[in-house]
């Protein structure tokens, strides 16, 4: 994942945004929009999420002047999106619904015998590392499809925690979930990806 990891890169970018540089805005938009969409999609449908992220970028033009840099640009942007998305929800009197009651994926749960042992154990051995697995274009496409099929809540949690490398506290804050509910979302999403990779390795099909 490409992000402005070096502190100096980030401060240069922030300077550019403060001075109203169009080129720097374009750079930042490409860098941070995926994460911002992951936040917005947790709360909103696709169209409202896009609208919210768009509005946020316009807000940033003025708000960046007051940005103190305590939290890092990414976290700051994600919080702006989360606040806007939550306001949007409130206005439309909708609520985020997610199932936090069971941490085991139903498909995986079926693979245990009544005595609690594996009836259908994991069939695959991971010998390749993730980077080389990703070079398999078909697997990468398959992963895209499965990520798209995850419930929004699970996907957002997974994206923020895994792909955008947020700390748990940050994700809980941005998504308004308790630490234990975040654990459920993450675990459920990972199991789905595990099942997908297993099927793919076994059959060569997505």
């Amino acid at each position: 994942m490409e992000t402005a990891t070096h502190q100096s890169d980030e401060s240069i970018l922030i300077q550019g945004l403060r001075s109203g540089s169009e080129a720097d805005f374009q750079k930042a938009v490409r860098l941070y929009t995926p994460g911002m969409m992951a936040v917005a999609r947790y709360y909103l449908d696709s169209a409202s999420a896009e609208e919210t992220v768009q509005d946020c970028w316009v807000t940033v033009i003025d708000a960046i002047q007051k940005f103190e840099g305590r939290s890092g640009l990414k976290t700051w942007l994600h919080r702006i999106v989360a606040n806007r998305a939550k306001n949007h929800l409130r206005k439309n009197k909708r609520e985020v619904s997610a199932d936090f009651s069971e941490s085991l994926d139903p498909e995986l749960a079926n693979r245990f015998a009544p005595n609690g042992r594996w009836a259908t154990p994991p069939s695959l051995r991971f010998e390749e590392d993730a980077e080389s697995l990703m070079e398999n274009g078909a697997l990468s496409d398959c992963l895209d499809q499965h990520l798209a099929r995850l419930p929004e809540t699970q996907r957002s949690a997974l994206m923020l925690y895994e792909a955008h490398q947020h700390k748990s506290d940050d994700v809980c804050n941005i998504l308004d979930v308790s630490a234990s509910n975040l654990r459920v979302l993450l675990h459920r999403a990972r199991q789905k990806i595990f099942l997908m990779v297993e099927t793919f390795q076994e059959t060569g099909e997505c």
Binding site: E2, V29, P122, R125, A130, M134, A163, I193, F194
Partner: peptide
């Protein structure tokens, strides 16, 4: 299972195709 689950999380971290929709980027 643990090895595979860990590999699945690595896979998501390495998954770089999570790119913004070009149409959305253009509008922004």
């Amino acid at each position: 299972f643990i090895g595979n689950l860990r590999a699945s999380t690595d896979l998501i971290q390495a998954h770089s195709s999570y790119k913004p929709d070009p149409e959305l980027v253009r509008r922004i």
